[in-house]
Every structure is written in structure tokens, then in C-alpha cells.
């Protein structure tokens, strides 16, 4: 199947993504276009398929049909490591630091094999979030929030053009959460694109220029946050027929 052409302004395009788990359709024909240099939000009720979508785009789930292009290259069916090296990185909803590796090793392993200055770069990143003192600590000995932050730093080692963040702030204390969002903004200023799953609507409103709403495996709305929050279908998906609780 030849993929439709992705507009050059979009760094990531997905068409008709469908993922079928033995009769249960987690994704049904998802179309998604992430603008270059944007911070795009992905919201939706629990179980709507957000994480599945990330699994498919990042290559960990290779059982989907449809088309995905990243930077105008079709990446569906690639190995996750290839996709990462190409410049598309992601974090996990629940922290997945390597527990028996030190913080520094956790970050270095994500860097390029051929980069001699990989250790200095990793230490530099730790410096930025005031974790340099923890370089020799094992991943499992960090607090949960620190683990999520390290996981975030880890994917920066490849200078990714697009970063998928799966609820990066969940379970993280407010101070670290601020550090994290500041970092996202800073990197976005330097040109990185983000696709973010987040439940806190204030963060979405504040951060995202465009928002996609996923419900039961389908994109039911997209546009800027103001448009989304008043969309009938979105309110219905979140609150059922008897809404009236205020979305934001």
C-alpha cells in the first residue's frame, strides 16, 4: 500500500491506523498529523487507545495496519531502535528506567555508539535538572519522579526531532513537574516537536497549539484547545450523555 503524501509542514502523519487485538479494535482508522515544531496534545478517556497509538508509532507494536510517515519516510514495521535512531523518541507511561544501571549509564546507553563525548553530554543533561550528584546512583534507588525525569533525559541523547511523551508528569511532584514542563518548552524553542498524552487540561491548554481527541480508538475531534473544549462529541466521550461538569 503506498502511503498518501505527508505535507512537509507535518513531521508525523498517520493514516487509517488500525490495531486489532483478536476482535477488539484498539485503534480504528486513526488519522493524525503533527505539525513540525508544535507541541501537540493527545487526550481521551482511559482505554481510548492513546498508549496503543504510541506503541504503534514507536514501533513496539508492529501489528497495526495503515500508514505512518515520520519526516516523509514510511516507518511502519521498522524496529523501535531504528525509529529512535531516526529521531523519533518516546517515554513510557510508567517509568522504565533500567533499575540496576546507574543514572549515568541509563542515559549514556541511549546515546550514539560512535559519540566520544557521550558521557559529557549525559552529565550536562543531568546538570540541567540538578541531578548531577545522582550520576552514580542506581536507577532503582531514585524517587519515582526522578526516574521519570531520567527517562525523559535519556531520550534526549539522540537529539530527537519528535518526542512522544506518555503522561510524563503523572506521579511526579510539583517541583519536578515544573522542571519537566520548562524543559519541554525550552526544547520546543530549540525546534523539537512534541506529541503529549496528558490528563491535566490546564497543562494541555497552556502548552499545546493543537489537540487530538481519541475515543474508543477513533479520533473524534482535533483543533486548538478552545475548539475542543466546546465540541459536543468530546464532552460526550468524556462525560457521557449526562455531562455538565465543566471540562477544563
Amino acid at each position: 500500500m503506498s502511503a498518501p503524501v505527508c505535507d512537509p509542514d507535518h513531521i508525523l502523519c498517520a493514516w487509517g491506523l488500525t490495531r486489532d487485538f483478536g476482535g477488539v479494535q484498539a485503534l480504528r482508522g486513526v488519522d493524525l498529523h503533527v505539525a513540525r515544531g508544535s507541541i501537540t496534545g493527545l487526550i481521551g478517556p482511559n482505554g481510548s487507545g492513546k498508549t496503543t497509538l504510541f506503541q504503534v508509532i514507536s514501533g513496539l507494536d508492529r501489528g497495526a495496519t495503515g500508514a505512518v510517515t515520520f519526516d516523509r519516510e514510511s516507518i511502519l514495521g521498522w524496529r523501535p531502535s531504528q525509529i529512535y535512531r531516526r529521531g523519533l523518541a518516546r517515554t513510557f507511561q510508567l517509568s522504565r528506567v533500567f533499575p540496576e544501571l546507574t543514572v549515568l549509564e541509563n542515559i549514556v546507553v541511549a546515546g550514539s555508539r560512535h559519540d566520544r563525548s557521550v558521557t559529557e553530554r549525559a552529565l550536562g543533561l543531568l546538570e540541567r535538572v540538578n541531578l548531577r550528584d545522582y550520576a552514580a546512583v542506581l536507577g532503582k534507588n531514585l524517587s519515582y519522579g526522578q526516574q521519570k525525569l531520567v527517562e525523559f533525559l535519556r531520550v534526549l541523547m539522540s537529539d530527537p526531532a519528535l518526542i512522544l511523551l506518555d503522561e510524563p508528569a503523572a506521579g511526579v511532584n510539583p517541583t519536578l513537574r515544573q522542571t519537566l514542563w520548562d524543559m519541554v518548552r525550552h526544547l520546543n524553542g530549540l525546534g523539537a516537536t512534541f506529541l503529549v498524552i496528558e490528563h491535566n487540561m490546564e497543562v494541555i491548554a497552556d502548552l499545546c497549539s493543537e489537540v487530538y481527541v481519541l475515543s474508543e480508538g477513533e479520533i473524534i475531534a482535533h483543533g486548538d484547545f478552545a475548539a475542543i473544549r466546546n465540541d459536543e462529541r468530546v464532552l460526550e466521550a468524556y462525560f457521557g450523555k449526562s455531562r455538565r461538569h465543566g471540562a477544563a
Binding site: 514507536s58 513496539l60 524496529r79 523501535p80 531502535s81 529512535y84 535512531r85 523518541a89 518516546r90 513510557f92 522504565r96 528506567v97 533500567f98 533499575p99 540496576e100 544501571l101 549509564e105 549514556v108 546507553v109 541511549a110 550514539s112 536507577g139 535519556r154 531520550v155 541523547m157 539522540s158
Partner: peptide
């Protein structure tokens, strides 16, 4: 280092380019 990352969490290792 890459082998140890695989031992710790193979998917996550693959996801950071291993």
C-alpha cells in the same frame, strides 16, 4: 552496557536505540 540494558528491560532498551 547494551546487554545489561537488555537484561533490565528489553523493550525500553530497544526504545532507546539498542
Amino acid at each position: 552496557l547494551e546487554l545489561r540494558a537488555i537484561r533490565e528491560d528489553e523493550e525500553a532498551a530497544e526504545m532507546v536505540g539498542v
